[in-house]
Design a protein around this nucleic acid. Sequence first.
DNA 1: CAAAACTATATGAAAAATCATATTGTTTGC
DNA 2: GCAAACAATATGATTTTTCATATAGTTTTG
Lengths: 164, 164
Amino acid sequence: MTQQKTDATSDKDTGPEGGFVSDYLLYLLAAASDVASAQFHAQVRKAGLRVPEWRVLACLSDTDGAMITQLARQALAEQSRLTRIIAQMEERGLLIRRSDPADGRRVRVYLTDAGRALAAELVPQARRHEAALIEMLKGNEGAHLKPALKSLLAALDGSADTQG
Amino acid sequence: MTQQKTDATSDKDTGPEGGFVSDYLLYLLAAASDVASAQFHAQVRKAGLRVPEWRVLACLSDTDGAMITQLARQALAEQSRLTRIIAQMEERGLLIRRSDPADGRRVRVYLTDAGRALAAELVPQARRHEAALIEMLKGNEGAHLKPALKSLLAALDGSADTQG
DNA sequence: CAAAACTATATGAAAAATCATATTGTTTGC
DNA sequence: GCAAACAATATGATTTTTCATATAGTTTTG
């Protein structure tokens, strides 16, 4: 007996085909997010931004004048982290911080022309990349992906408890 | 004119309803992964594990004796990070490292009884949590979520180029 | 209007993650 | 069977991220 692949893990493999992990929703979500983002995140870095910086830029290009806390939620980063990212982006001249006249605690963040220019370059790239991804999924179940994700997000927004 | 909400960002909000970000696939994926995982990851931490440790445990409970590189792929972590996580988990007695007799470069990782016991506790928790999530989606588009994610992953595996 | 409770942001210290590269072991081509 | 190329893991230095908490500003209550 030449012992040819008895115990499931002889050579390289992305994962065990039939195990728990490969069919586990939280794994599928994290893996899909990772893999799908990798390509575009490379473009982001080529443009001289880190991923959270790109996210801030994109959020601001949607909603200029957002506050730090809002941006943290939208960019999926922690507040203290956002504070620092904003500070760095301000130093680079991509945005400016201005305290809200109506409430001095709030810091509102606005894109500069440079920031807006960068966003105007990256957002279309993001759209094209997204279109390419979606193109890959034509005909498959993948057509339901965005609606399904929105449905999940909608279901989870507004359920802080219910879980033991 | 009482100026009542002219510029889109008056108060708290999860995101601008109609902007680019809130309909962008990579955002939806990352946000869904984050939000959906948050609940369960809290349970993981209660069990005394960090998220990547839980992932390693789950992978090993599927495929005992996996190598570091394999685990890195499956647990969505970098190799050097995995090396350190494995070292720490070994110190805690959750697993052991053994070099592969067939190829001395490879380190195969095996759960100890303690590790297996912890996995036997957490994996069912994960399954229950997943079931609860999926239950929330009944009737909606959410039913397609797992197939759609698998379809995306399948489409992306084996396309290193194609992107400019 | 002062004290208490709360909210938004900032910051120091610590932990986690990454990057480049070293180390160790294996395969290949000559 | 030795040198070159390759592969898997480890490690030092650095950067990123988190955590706890400080600071500053606002609202509420009596």
